[in-house]
């Protein structure tokens, strides 16, 4: 009962390890799976540095045992880059807007925002601030993080509107869209 097998999918890869039952999910990800992008800031669920996605939802990996994640799909900061290795829109926006300084809290913010923007594609500043309020940053004073999220929304909207005309030229497809 002290050890248990944990099988889960992380960043699209199936993994299986036998670990101590008391091992925190954060340590499982960092020490067992060697994905050290997820950082440990407080281990009592306040700072949000260890935020990951569990079946697409943001959670604090320091407040979960690895065994609790058995069977789940996990995404960490290492999953964000585009397939060709370039920064994704959110990461690029953080770079463009200087949304990070020391970078320690950054992976947590990126994961929180990744999940948030899936649920809210066009947030107000207040909604953005609320969404990131579970992540502490001691360097930036948050302003540029808010700006980075706004920039991401803007970029996503632009790229969407760029593809829209393609949709409109296809009359049938347009109808289908309306029906659904």
């Amino acid at each position: 009962m002290n050890k248990r097998i944990v099988a889960l999918t992380i960043n699209g890869v199936d993994v299986q390890r036998k670990v101590a039952s008391r091992m925190l999910l954060t340590d499982f990800i960092r020490d067992e799976l060697k994905l050290t992008g997820t950082n440990v800031g407080c281990e009592h669920g306040v700072c949000g540095a260890c935020t990951i996605l569990l079946n697409g939802e943001s959670v604090r990996s320091c407040l979960m045992l690895a065994v609790q994640a058995d069977g789940y799909e996990i995404e960490t900061v290492e999953s964000l880059q585009n397939d060709n290795g370039t920064l994704n829109t959110l990461q690029q926006s953080f770079k463009d807007c200087h949304g990070l300084q020391c970078g320690f809290c950054t992976p947590g913010f990126l994961m929180t925002v990744t999940s948030f923007l899936k649920e809210n594609e066009d947030p107000t500043e207040e909604e953005i601030r609320e969404a990131i309020s579970g992540n502490l940053c001691r360097c930036t004073g948050y302003a540029n993080i808010v700006k980075s999220v706004q920039r991401t929304v803007q970029s996503q909207r632009t790229s969407k509107s760029l593809t829209e005309p393609v949709c409109h030229t296809d009359h049938k497809q347009n109808e289908t869209v309306q029906i659904s």
């Binding site: 604090r60 999940s115 579970g134």
Partner: peptide, 9 residues
């Protein structure tokens, strides 16, 4: 209640 991450779990 807490924050989004807390409410998710």
């Amino acid at each position: 209640v807490g924050t989004t991450q807390i409410r998710n779990r």
